[in-house]
């Protein structure tokens, strides 16, 4: 049972589903964090996942690339299906992670590698690109995120906002089909967060399929096509961003949005 898709105007109606989540469940011991999650995304769509702390947003995102193995249900990304009740083979897991790029709240760059090497090394090891090829791509991506001059620096010499843009470039370098963002600006000062959001906006406009767990309501409303509003392990409301954020139906959603929008 897949929730009906209401893509924003930017995504063509006929675009195929690139991501489908069916009956996804996740428990930590007896604590059920995700309860029967269903949603689908079209290629090129940008979905913001919002909701109060502890609602299961990050867990949902981490289940999508199996950083957290799901307890039940199935996930399909770009034709590759992972079922929770089947033993996951290593090749499948690697395939899934190759299709999904991930950006973390705490950047997680490799501190002992230069900025350029952070972006080029995974390309060589995962995709088998030559060093020259990988570095060429890394330079191009650094250019794209506005950090061409940082190539030879080490991550510690870069600001938080710069580190996050480098982390985005690192994930993009592996040519993912879907980009997963786990609260990418939560560790940053608001004004520094803006430079990261600008890069994400540009990425969205370039047609990248993105799932963004975020507290940035302005981003959710203006950049994303759709919003999933989660609470207590459920998708409480789902639909075009403006609709969900301006006219939430349930009382719980109204309460959450009122609290975050009036800040």
């Amino acid at each position: 049972m897949i929730a009906e898709i209401q893509a924003g105007p930017r995504v063509p109606e006929a675009a195929p589903n690139i991501l489908e989540v069916r009956n996804l469940r996740k428990s930590f011991g007896v604590h059920e964090v995700l309860k029967n999650i269903n949603f689908a995304m079209r290629k090129g769509e940008v979905v913001a996942v919002i909701g109060p702390s502890g609602s299961g947003k990050s867990t949902l995102l981490r289940c999508l690339n199996q950083l957290e193995p799901a307890s039940g249900g199935e996930i399909t990304i770009d034709g590759l299906t992972i079922r929770a009740d089947h033993q996951l083979r290593r090749a499948e897991l690697m395939g899934l992670r190759r299709k999904a790029g991930m950006v973390f709240q705490s950047f997680n760059l490799f501190p002992h590698l230069s900025v350029l090497r952070n972006i080029s090394l995974p390309q060589e090891r995962v995709l088998g690109r030559s060093r020259a090829e990988a570095e060429k791509r890394a330079h191009a991506l650094l250019e794209r995120v506005g950090l061409a001059d940082k190539a030879s620096q080490y991550p510690a010499r870069c600001s938080g906002g710069q580190q996050q843009r480098i982390a985005i470039a690192r994930a993009l370098a592996l040519d993912p089909q879907v980009m997963l963002f786990d609260e990418p600006t939560s560790a940053l000062d608001p004004e520094v967060g803006l430079e990261v959001l600008a890069v994400m906006k540009e990425l969205a406009e370039g047609g990248m399929t993105m799932v963004v767990v975020t507290h940035e309501m302005h981003f959710a409303e203006t950049v994303s096509d759709r919003v999933l509003l989660m609470a207590d392990g459920h998708i409480l409301e789902e639909g075009p961003s403006a609709e969900v954020m301006r006219n939430p139906k349930s009382e719980r959603a109204q309460r959450f949005l009122k609290a975050v929008m009036n800040r």
């Binding site: 992670r97 190759r98 995974p122 090891r125 690192r170 994930a171 592996l174």
Partner: peptide
């Protein structure tokens, strides 16, 4: 812990993870 997560999310092979990322640190 974020280093291990980045290794997993990028899909780095185990040998490379150890040799390129963990061992130098």
């Amino acid at each position: 812990a974020g280093q291990w997560e980045a290794i997993s999310a990028l899909g780095l092979p185990p040998v490379s993870s150890f040799k390129d990322i963990i061992l130098p640190q």
